[in-house]
Write a protein that binds this DNA or RNA. Structure first.
Length: 574
DNA sequence: ATAAGCACGC
DNA sequence: GACGTACGTGCTTATA
């Protein structure tokens, strides 16, 4: 099952102490550069990479050209511009590793890469989503000689993409997406630094007050941020009845869930919760975000990572702009600090409604859930009506809340115990709800069973576009790891198909915006949401475009709904 | 440096 | 008897 078998096992892997030394043709003077450009002009595929001080080209696996880059920006730009005829040629294929980085570096010098992209990192991500995709790692595992590593990986991964039916996903989705993400990153997001500074000062005062209250009740000062110290204060010193189990390191658990259970035991508990959420907001967002504003353009430039998650979602870091608070009032204040870049712009947020449930309705073919979506019903209310056996107009808010938890639980492969814990109901009540659920949604139950069976037979599951997730523990004798694999068998195709869908939408929107030479910018993706910094003149046309491309990216046999909102900050637009 | 525990998002 | 809802990033603390 291990991928390595596909490459003939470990036999070809060199001993770890042998250092592979590649030989380079050093390119220095103009005549050598012209010679290289000539050979690049003649080839239809070449490997490339660029870093701060050097770049390499290889027109075949053996001849690797290395060029040192001038420190002076203008000289560097002049040198790079000599290669623009190569990078502009959309008939040529460029082999790279994490090409988004190469695109971003060249963009700083005013160059575009218009070649067909062939990114080894992303190829490997599709072939083995959960492995390491770094060049160092791939070099250790796959490189068999001293020829160009990117060419070696290209040869191997090309065959594997074909064998695993991943070519469509690679060429038509992931490769076009590379450019989209590079553009989104360079577009950047404006934040209201002064607003955040003000919030920070208010939070500092409030935190100091809470600290004092906590120390007073505890009768001592201690580090509230230390779960270890906190646990000892709560459960030893203050003698609050301790949770049944300690953590694996022998500490008292003090997570939010634990504290909620003892919230009425002592007023210190609420203070702790307030302290935790406030210090979290302050350190992770309010104080951190301003420090990440670029000195060049005053904007925040996140990284969107295309080869991280096990399911096909993107991730975001430095900073993570996919987990900006929205749940609490204090959190929402932070979201308000995300603003349009100038007075000519306005934020537009477009999000898919209930996309994962629509996908499970589509994939399962369940008639009850499909008809709920086709009739445009409130899906959670409809589920409540079915599960509790009442008319939809008689559904109480508690019934709806419970049904919503079940719908979410279904996507995540939840158990009766888990539902009972979440809803604070008895396990037998939870079982009853789940039993009724699957009686009403027979197709969903069948789909879940089918996914698990498929995984047990083939060792993987796949999304609507054939993105795979391998589940090597699916037949494990250890029920804990097997159950985990079974939950992944249910969730991965749903979460992953949703990721497929929004990626298609992003590509189509990007291409259309580019074709129309629009001033507006796509700036964020948060799994089921896209955010745009819209030039006000373009608001109507872009809104229509976004709605159309998102709705029609990957049609389902149930309707797809997209909600659009505008605002002078992200909270307002959300 | 690295892991643990915790909290933020979807 | 244990386990118990998917996917991430990043902070502070504690330990090495």
């Amino acid at each position: 099952m291990a991928t390595l078998d596909l490459f003939g096992g470990f036999d070809e892997e060199p001993a770890a102490n042998i250092v592979k030394a590649r030989e380079f043709i050093i390119v220095k003077d103009d005549s050598q550069i012209n010679e290289l450009i000539d050979s690049l002009k003649k080839c239809d595929i070449f490997s490339f990479h660029i870093e701060t001080r050097e770049m390499t080209f290889a027109v075949n696996p053996n001849d690797i050209y290395k060029i040192e880059l001038p420190v002076d920006d203008e000289k560097c730009k002049d040198l790079l511009t000599k290669f623009s005829c190569i990078f502009n040629d959309n008939e040529k294929t460029i082999i790279g590793h994490n090409i988004k980085t190469d695109i971003s570096i060249l963009a700083k010098y005013g160059l575009e890469i218009n070649n067909k992209l062939w990114d080894c990192m992303i190829a490997h991500y599709l072939i083995e989503p959960e492995l390491n995709h770094s060049l160092d790692y791939l070099n250790d595992i796959y490189a068999t000689d001293n020829t160009d590593i990117r060419w070696q990986l290209y040869d191997k991964f090309k065959a594997l993409l074909s064998e695993n039916d991943l070519e469509n996903l690679f060429h038509n989705i992931e490769m076009p997406l590379v450019r989209v993400l590079a553009k989104m990153e360079s577009n950047g997001v404006k934040i209201d630094i002064n607003g955040l500074k003000q919030i920070s000062e208010e939070q500092a005062k409030e935190i100091a007050n809470i600290e004092n209250s906590i120390y007073e009740i505890a009768g001592t000062t201690f580090n509230i941020g230390s779960p270890k110290q906190l646990g000892e204060i709560l459960f030893d010193k203050l003698q609050i009845k301790a949770p049944a189990k300690k953590t694996k390191t022998g500490q008292y658990p003090t997570g939010e869930e634990v504290l909620q259970k003892i919230i009425n035991e002592n007023p210190i508990v609420q203070h702790i919760l307030d302290y935790r959420s406030l210090t979290k907001l302050k350190s992770t967002y309010v104080d951190a975000l301003p420090s990440l504003v670029s000195p060049y353009d005053g904007l925040i430039h996140t990284s969107f990572n295309q080869a991280v998650t096990a399911t096909g979602r993107l991730s975001s870091n430095n900073p993570n702009l996919q987990n900006i608070p929205v749940r609490t009032d204090k959190g929402r204040e932070i979201r308000k600090a995300f603003v349009p870049r100038d007075e000519n712009h306005i934020l537009l947020a477009a999000d898919y409604s209930q996309i994962e449930l629509r996908i499970i309705a589509h994939l399962s073919g369940d008639q009850a859930m499909q008809s709920a979506f086709r009739e445009g019903l409130d899906i959670h209310a409809d589920t409540a009506a079915r599960v509790y056996g009442v008319d939809i107009k008689d559904v109480t808010s508690e019934m709806r809340r419970n049904a919503k938890a079940v719908n979410f639980g279904i996507i995540y492969g939840m158990s009766a115990f888990g539902l009972a814990e979440r809803l604070k109901i008895s396990r037998s009540e939870a079982s009853e709800i789940i039993k009724n659920y699957f009686k009403e949604y027979v197709g969903i139950q069948e789909y879940i069973d089918k996914q698990v069976d498929f995984a047990k037979q083939y060792g993987y599951v796949e999304t609507m576009l054939g993105r795979r997730r391998y589940l090597r523990d699916i037949n494990s004798g250890n029920s804990v790891v097997r159950n985990f694999a079974e939950r992944n068998a249910i969730n991965a195709p749903i979460q992953g198909s949703s990721a497929d869908m929004i990626k298609i939408a992003m590509i189509n929107i990007h291409n259309e915006m580019k074709a129309r030479d629009m001033k507006s910018k796509m700036i964020l993706q948060v799994h089921d949401e896209l955010v745009f910094d819209v030039h006000k003149e373009e608001l109507d046309i872009l809104s229509e475009l976004v709605k159309d491309k998102m709705t029609n990216a990957l049609p389902l046999n149930v309707p797809i709904e997209v909600n659009l909102n505008t605002g002078t900050n992200w909270l307002e637009a959300h």
